[in-house]
Structure formats: structure tokens, C-alpha cells
Design a protein around this nucleic acid. Structure first.
Length: 268
DNA sequence: CGGCATGTTGCGCA
DNA sequence: TTGCGCAACATGCC
């Protein structure tokens, strides 16, 4: 499911279920998702604690508890949080659950993850993965000057750079692909070949893709979207100029782009 | 059956 | 030091 907008939807849901609630029990028997912690450590750290806040930075979630403990959640490729139903039913691909009492009533959050690339980490302070994240485009906005400065020093393809979580936190394969289409810039362009005006276009393109995706997810929280502007549309006509969408691989990831209206920058 | 997938990490190599 | 390509992780869908 997850790129930044999806994780934001998950954050709001977890906040609604958990904030201010007292954890009665937390359980997970999945050593892959808990790596490298044990199920017992997970359960012991959370039981009896009250949830103070549910925060997000990029694709990471941070649940803060009353004793300072933090629970970090990364959704990997297929992770998702849902509310526990009244019967407390076990769901397909369930990997963990957090049971709480809120205003005297029982409730809970269930973590689903078929491929188990996601992670749940309990720690007394912020983990390196969180500390090393760059600015969050939704919460902090995109600082064009700072981004341009970082890109000017690199020859890597602009699309690969945009997915670097220390540069901007939360941009994945879909948002990078969509954002560059909005910006009309060829994803293969070396970062350093982009002018300051190009970088401003990229920032606006990413923001447009971000807003659009968030809106779609808000209206259908648990549905996977598949009608993007270019992502997944190789071989089909560009919605802007009609040229057949091309496919290539950048940084090991499938990339769709339009040779008709996304211009390759090459002068460094 | 093969191919592909929204993410991340680690390794070998230039 | 930088960066790239690639494999691995584990499962489901077409």
C-alpha cells in the first residue's frame, strides 16, 4: 500500500483508535516483522502504557507512549493497519494486534502484512532509520533551494534521487514517477542537469501528485488505486500529448514516462 | 508456469 | 568516496 499519502491515512486511523487509550495487550508472533526483537519484548514494552501521540515522517510511523517508549512502524510493501472488529476476528495476513481500552470500551488496531517486508520496532528513543529521514514534503513542504543544492552535486537520475529518503522522506516509485510527469521532466535526467526552475517544477509536480493521491485515499481508505497518470501505463497513450508511454528501469525500479512531453535534461 | 509488485538493505564491482 | 546493478527478503496476483 504504502507511500507517504497511504502512511498518512494509516496514521490518522491509528490516532483515532489509539490516542489517549490504554494498551491492555499487544501481541505478535511474527519474528520477521519484529526483527530483531522477540515477541515477548514487544508485548512487555506496550502492555499497560497509554498512547500519547501517533506521528509520521515520510513512510515511518511513530507511536509515543506515556513512559517515553516509542513504537515505530514501517509498512514495507504490503503493510496496513485496520481497526479490530467487534468480534476480534483474526484477519488474513495479520501479523500483530494492539488491544486498548478507550473510555471504558475495548478497541484495537491490527497490523496486516502479506509479504512481511514491514517492521514493528519498540525503542526507548528515536531509531536511526527515523533520525536519518529528510524533510517530510507534506508536513514541512519542499524547500526548493535546499533540494536544488543537494541535486546539483549528483549525477544520479533525478527519479532515483527523489526516492532517496534522506533527501525527501516519503517519495516512492509511484510519487516520483507521477511527480516527474507533472513536472514534464524526463526521469532519466541527471540530477545536476536540472536548472533551479526545473527543480521548482519538480517540487510543484511532487506536491500535485501528493495532494491528488491523498484525496483519492481519503475517499477510499482501504482500496488500492490503479488509475495513475503514467505509473503502470506503459504502452498506453499519454493523457497530455497522446504519445505512447515508455518504460525503463531506474535504480532497479520500473519507470513509466512520456518521451513526447517529458524533456530530457542532459547539460551538466 | 513465469513475470511482476507501492520498499529497503547489502554486496560486489568500477 | 560515489554510484550502479543486482539479489535477497516473502507472498499474492495476473
Amino acid at each position: 500500500m504504502p507511500e507517504l499519502p497511504d502512511v498518512e491515512i494509516a496514521r490518522r486511523r491509528l490516532e483515532r483508535i489509539l490516542r489517549g487509550a490504554k494498551i491492555t495487550r499487544a501481541q505478535s508472533g511474527d519474528r520477521r516483522v519484529l526483527r530483531p526483537q522477540s515477541p515477548a519484548t514487544f508485548a512487555r514494552a506496550l502492555a499497560g502504557r497509554t498512547v500519547r501521540a501517533v506521528e509520521r515522517r515520510g513512510k515511518w510511523l511513530r507511536v509515543r507512549l506515556d513512559d517515553g517508549t516509542r513504537l515505530f512502524s514501517h509498512l514495507g510493501m504490503t503493510g496496513w493497519w485496520v481497526e479490530l472488529d467487534r468480534a476480534g476476528e483474526h484477519r488474513r495476513s495479520e501479523r500483530a494486534r494492539i488491544l486498548v481500552t478507550r473510555r471504558g470500551k475495548p478497541a484495537g488496531a491490527v497490523y496486516l502484512d502479506s509479504r512481511r517486508f514491514g517492521r514493528l520496532i519498540v525503542a526507548p528513543e528515536d531509531i536511526a532509520e527515523w533520525r536519518e529521514l529528510g524533510p517530510d514534503p507534506l508536513a514541512d513542504g519542499i524547500d526548493v533551494g535546499r533540494l536544488a543544492g543537494a541535486l546539483a552535486r549528483s549525477r544520479r537520475a533525478i527519479k532515483d534521487a527523489l526516492m532517496d529518503q534522506s533527501l525527501l522522506a516519503g517519495i516512492g516509485n509511484i510519487l516520483a514517477t507521477e511527480g516527474l510527469w507533472h513536472a514534464r521532466i524526463d526521469p532519466r535526467s541527471p540530477s545536476a542537469a536540472l536548472s533551479r526552475a526545473d527543480v521548482a517544477k519538480v517540487a510543484r509536480g511532487l506536491e500535485a501528485a501528493l495532494r491528488e493521491e491523498l484525496e483519492v485515499r481519503e475517499s477510499a481508505e482501504d482500496e488500492w488505486r490503479d488509475d495513475f497518470a503514467v505509473y503502470g501505463r506503459a504502452g498506453q497513450p499519454c493523457r497530455r500529448c497522446g504519445t505512447i508511454i515508455s518504460r525503463t528501469v531506474i535504480g532497479g525500479r520500473t519507470t513509466a514516462f512520456c518521451k513526447g512531453c517529458q524533456v530530457l535534461r542532459s547539460k551538466i
